[in-house]
């Protein structure tokens, strides 16, 4: 049971890092970004490569993951999504474009994994990384628990401070709400959005660092987190940043606890993804504003 709770918390931390970025990209470009899972994987391989080269723990390589994820996301904004948005591409066109971006990233990582395995002589597919253990309040917990929680907390709080306590953040929220008015006030909307995309990608990249400590990893692993992350956004209420974070913990914990419960009844835990898929469909149909309807009218 402790294992389940630990797993749920770590998983929710990572979902929160993804979901807030997905929300930010939805708000800025109206795109449901299907490439965001692959940005996670980019962070994973960036940190993994750095840790092999520098002979340090992958945890020490989080900055590389932040940078790699941020850059990939920024490039996708500058080269694909911003031009498409300006050309008047609708949300589904942008979504299709994001699937293409995701495929380019994913299969580039597949190719990179081959190269990395050859040149660095480490496993780059179907691998897990060994974690250290900690004594916390008399319980033995894996290091990924406090570290992922700390990372998620620091990054999310920083993002909050940026958005609500700095002029740049106010400008970003303003540009999201009314780009034309923002532009007429002298805000460089494209630059502000680009910063938002870099941050979204950086957060996703950071999430990637922790994945190999929990699941068997390969270049497809981030993609498999995408729909649960979308479930977090939907459950939290589309368009609400705070909702996405809340949604991530609701989805993360319900996935693990429900599948644990069902497992005790003899249902295979392999059905676990159904929980978040069902959450997407049910929330959209029954309560489209999700959790955010609890605090906003």
């Amino acid at each position: 049971m402790l294992d389940v709770l630990v797993g749920a918390l770590v998983y929710s931390n990572l979902l929160a890092l993804l979901a807030i970025g997905l929300s930010l990209m939805l708000l800025t470009c109206r795109v449901s970004n299907f490439a965001h899972g692959d940005v996670v994987t980019t962070g994973l391989y960036a940190a993994y490569t750095a840790s092999v080269l520098l002979r340090v723990s992958p945890y020490a390589c989080i900055p590389f993951a932040l940078l790699a994820g941020g850059l990939v996301s920024l490039l996708s904004f500058l080269l694909v999504f911003d031009p498409l948005r300006r050309a008047g591409g609708g949300p589904v066109t942008l979504m299709v474009a994001s699937m293409a971006v995701g495929i380019i990233i994913r299969y580039s990582l597949h190719a990179y994994a081959d190269v990395m395995q050859r040149t660095l002589g480490v496993y780059t597919r179907q691998f897990v990384l060994s974690d250290f253990e900690l004594q916390l309040a008399g319980l033995r917990v894996p290091g990924v628990l406090p570290l992922s929680s700390l990372t998620a907390a620091v990054l999310l709080v920083s993002l909050y401070v940026l958005l609500y306590r700095t002029r740049l953040g106010v400008a970003m929220r303003a540009a999201i709400e009314n780009p034309q008015l923002a532009e007429s006030l002298g805000i460089d909307v494209k630059r502000v959005f680009a910063i938002g995309w870099f941050l979204s990608g950086a957060l996703a990249g950071a999430a990637g660092v922790f994945l190999p400590f929990r699941v068997i990893s390969d270049p497809d692993v981030g993609w498999s987190m995408l729909l649960p992350a979308f479930a977090s956004v939907v459950v939290g209420g589309i368009g609400s940043l705070a909702g996405s974070v809340a949604g991530a913990y609701v989805v993360g914990f319900s996935e693990l606890l429900l599948s644990y419960l069902l497992a005790t009844l003899g249902v295979s835990t392999a059905y676990r993804p159904l929980i978040s898929f069902a959450a997407i469909v049910a929330t959209l149909l029954l309560r489209p504003k999700g959790l955010s309807s609890l605090w906003s009218r």
Binding site: R173, A174, S184, L185
Partner: peptide
């Protein structure tokens, strides 16, 4: 220029709106 609609950021506070209006925050 004061447009007929959409002339303020409704999700932002009055203070934040004024902050954005200033050239120099």
């Amino acid at each position: 220029y004061l447009p007929q609609v959409g002339n303020t950021f409704e999700g932002l506070t009055v203070r934040e709106n004024l902050l954005l209006a200033l050239h120099d925050g």
